[in-house]
């Protein structure tokens, strides 16, 4: 059972799993946990401090913070997970193809990834989001399409080393079509790497959603999301209304921190060795959280 699985894992991992489980459960059970509506304005009860009635207080138009936190979490987590799925699928195929093809095509594909990595992630997202326009769907696609580069690089490095293994060589000699080699052999064997990058990536997507919504370019203002709530809290901060900004921020930190700890642990369990990028001979910084920094941190 789950409890048996948990035994023997490091304390931080246990805490992360419990925290994430709690957050997800609360988000799913939102209607049972709060009597309020996340969108309805209640001008009779603006700027209520946390306490009786409103657990975490109310915002500048009288909406219950706790309630918006729960419903907003749905949007934030949804964006985080869905955009990471786009990014992982695209990045994995891109990287596997690049590594499998080799030669000048590989060089070209990797330089394109390098060029995108060289641009500040936030700026790239701003531009594409400005072109695409606001909205949940656009946001998911934009975050997904600006965060696949690191996955591609890692998968490529993995594929390059797999290509030297006998079973792949045998497969090629037998005339297996390249599509089949990639989907049946190369990608499944790269799964540990993909799992780690994806896990940490979800955390960063959540952060990206928050940043873009905070800047007014993500989720439309009436819909609650953690980033949106912070945008609303920005003006109230000057009046000393700390509770509007404090709680959504804590929710983000808790979620992302748990995800990063889990990613770190997955890395330890799944890929004990360090991956060296054969092209550049550079350590592709795989020291725990280091695996994701060149992909931008999402903030």
């Amino acid at each position: 059972m789950i409890l048996d699985q948990m035994r023997g894992r490091p304390l931080a991992v246990k805490i992360s799993l419990i925290a994430l489980g709690l957050i997800i459960a609360m988000i799913l059970l939102a209607p049972l946990l709060t009597p309020y509506d996340p969108i309805t304005v209640d001008l009779a009860h603006v700027f209520q401090t946390p306490g009786t009635g409103h657990l975490m207080g109310t915002d500048s138009v009288g909406r219950d913070i706790f309630c918006r936190l729960l419903y907003g979490g749905r949007v934030s987590l949804l964006v985080g997970v869905l955009s990471m799925i786009i990014s992982t699928v695209f990045g994995s195929f891109y990287g596997a193809l690049s590594g499998y093809l080799g030669g000048s095509l590989d060089a070209l594909l990797m330089r394109v990834a390098d060029a995108m990595l060289a641009l500040p992630n936030m700026l790239l997202m701003l531009v594409i989001q400005a072109i695409a326009g606001p909205g949940v769907f656009n946001l998911i696609v934009v975050i997904g399409l600006t965060s696949w580069m690191q996955t591609a690089r890692m998968v490529r490095a993995e594929v390059l080393s797999l290509k030297e293994r006998d079973f792949i060589k045998a497969s090629m000699l037998l005339g297996t079509p390249w599509r089949r080699i990639i989907t049946r052999h190369l990608l499944p064997h790269s799964l540990p790497t993909i799992a780690v990058v994806t896990t940490v990536g979800v955390g960063h997507s959540i952060m990206s959603e928050a940043s873009l919504s905070f800047l007014g370019l993500g989720i439309p203002p009436f819909k609650p999301s953690w980033g949106n709530m912070l945008m609303g809290g920005q003006n109230s901060i000057m009046m000393g209304a700390w509770w509007i900004s404090l709680f959504p921020g804590l929710a983000i930190v808790m979620t992302v921190l748990s995800i990063i700890y889990l990613g770190d642990y997955l890395q330890l369990v799944l890929n004990p060795r360090r991956i060296v990028d054969p092209a550049t001979e550079q350590r592709s910084v795989m020291y725990g959280i280091g695996s994701i920094e060149t992909a931008g941190t999402g903030k």
Binding site: S211, F214, M238, L246, I252, K299
Partner: peptide, 24 residues
């Protein structure tokens, strides 16, 4: 501390510091 800071949205950190050192 490192991991917590990495998981903290920079703009939220900014808001909290504004609150403490600017407003309070």
């Amino acid at each position: 501390t490192s991991l917590t800071l990495v998981s903290t949205p920079n703009f939220w950190l900014a808001l909290m510091l504004i609150l403490i050192f600017g407003v309070w």
